[in-house]
Design a protein around this nucleic acid. Structure first.
Lengths: 319, 319
DNA sequence: TTGTAAGCGTTATCAA
DNA sequence: TTGATAACGCTTACAA
């Protein structure tokens, strides 16, 4: 494998000159440029990016920490990050964690070792305090409300979202409202749960844990919601679904359970995935693609910034 | 930032010894190991992976070339690759091409520069001949029938799939069969088209280009199929959909067009995405997750291998 | 069991 | 406008 030295020798110049030609530096005589280019062609010379990375202390690689890959929520986020990264000549390295702390730590270690320049954390188990310790090695950006952390973050106020959605249902006469969540220990889930409790208290409604369905994330989880509710004496008349996937799953399974939507059960989904539009599901629209882009851009910024993304309820036919 | 030399100095040993400790080499006195470990802790020393990569000529990064990220087809493939990669301590770098040759070339260039060790190409525009020229720089694995290319590949016989599906429909009385595809210049699309033509000829059926709907990939494309068909005098009685997403999109939009499935239109989807199960869509099951794993493993193998993945028609309620 | 020193392939400073 | 040469931070013969 030819190196810069081979090229220099063949072209009859120094390695410095070859490097200059390679990097489009000014102040190289045209003849030398030609000679170098010829030598490069003849030797089949290829730059070694690891050497360049070592020298420059930079890889143009950005990491993305996420629990799983097969959900539109993360796909859209990924699409956004990837698009923005591409503009800045960055490539995306995936750290799929499966909600395992160890996997997250691995991503942080890679930042430390300088395999990646920066890191976007879309979901985490590791404490903020631990993550913060790694920020000396590169920018770390969070997709959550990080409070007064020195890290950059972009977030959606899930508490407010949930409150709005609950109020929307309440105003339309619903008093028995349930909801589904994914992992109850998730940052977003906690906010949603809190909003739910606070709302109930404000309105003087009773908290019934049978109205809460856990571990719902995918389309196929929708049916479980129906199954759980159908066993109840007193059933909820409305539901806030974890995501549009779950909402769609419920829609699809509902005829089988003899439930009409919205008459028997009103549904509000989350994210505004394409399926929500196709199935006319009322949902909270979250611009995940553009959030992804923002997250990447924060990764590049010298100073930390905190951004809240406004979301809106999209009225369709399931309420 | 502390280097290996700082550690050596503080521990009172040579850099070679520090390196040995770092890499768990035998033949280091216990006391020295302790001294080195202490020095590492004190200095806050961190290995620089770029230096290691340069030295070893290896990055433990595998590239994945794919056109887009927001489709379950690619998500599942990605999931499979990522899972297998993780087992071998590899991380996945995404090269999202948007079907652009230039973007694909960039991935190949990165292989050449040694930013990634190997490359999985899930979709391509660039010719096989060009791709083959890059195999000297790392293993390249294809997700298609590469014929007698020296590259490794895993593939699904889309021609046979289509033939089977067409025969299945024919045997159930269908004579007017349409299909949808994504990009007509895609490798898979061409095979499907050829099967369609051959089938028609064998059975003495007429080829009608109105029965073919192009640029269909997403859920929201389903409606366009219905729109196109509804304009026709003579409408197809059955359809082979690009993917389950399109099939589902058709299912969802069908009531609006006064079309019942399968009575007015029988549908066979592709891939067996979760939505196909939820909506009881008859489909050709393609084990994308395990294909992804196979693709990654081929990436690691010294010798090229060619694998065909068997697929099966999953009978449900849309035919 | 340990240390010296030669790479790995660049970039960039400095002097000419 | 050019060339020597010193980094970048590590691994690994080779010699001791």
């Amino acid at each position: 494998m030819a190196t810069i030295r081979d090229v220099a020798r063949l072209a009859g110049v120094s390695v410095a000159t070859v490097s200059r030609v390679l990097n489009d530096h000014p102040y190289v005589k045209r003849e030398k440029v030609e000679a170098v280019k010829k030598a490069i062609a003849e030797t089949g010379y290829i730059q070694n990016i690891n050497a360049i990375n070592l020298k420059k202390g930079k890889t143009n690689l950005v990491g993305m920490v996420l629990p799983l890959l097969d959900h539109p929520y993360f796909s859209q986020l990924m699409q956004g990050i990837s698009t923005a990264a591409s503009v800045h000549h960055y490539k995306l390295v995936l750290y799929q964690t499966g909600y395992q702390e160890g996997q997250e730590m691995e991503a942080l270690e890679m930042l430390k070792l300088k395999q990646i320049d920066n890191l976007v954390i879309c979901s985490r188990q590791v404490s903020l305090a631990v993550i913060e310790r790694f920020r000396q090695y590169g920018n770390i950006v969070l997709f959550e409300n990080g409070g007064n952390t020195p890290l950059s973050y972009t977030f959606v106020d899930h508490y407010a979202c949930f409150m709005n959605a609950l109020t929307y249902l309440y105003d339309r006469g619903h008093r028995e409202i349930g909801f589904s969540i994914n992992r109850s220990d998730g940052t977003n889930s906690k906010q949603r749960e809190q909003a739910y409790k606070d709302f109930l208290e404000t309105k003087g409604l009773r908290y019934r844990k049978e109205y809460i369905v856990k571990d719902c994330l995918y389309l196929e989880d929708g049916e479980r919601v129906l199954k759980q509710f159908s066993k109840l004496q007193q059933r909820p008349t409305a539901l806030l679904a974890t995501s549009d996937q779950v909402a769609a799953g419920i829609m699809i399974a509902s005829p089988e359970y003899g439930i009409s939507i919205p008459e028997d059960l009103a549904i509000i989904g989350f994210d505004n995935h394409p399926i929500a539009k196709a199935m006319n599901i009322t949902t909270i629209g979250i611009p995940l693609n553009s959030i992804g882009q923002t997250l990447f851009e924060q990764t590049l910024s010298e100073s930390a910034s905190h951004k809240e993304v406004p979301v809106s309820l999209i009225e369709r036919l399931t309420v």
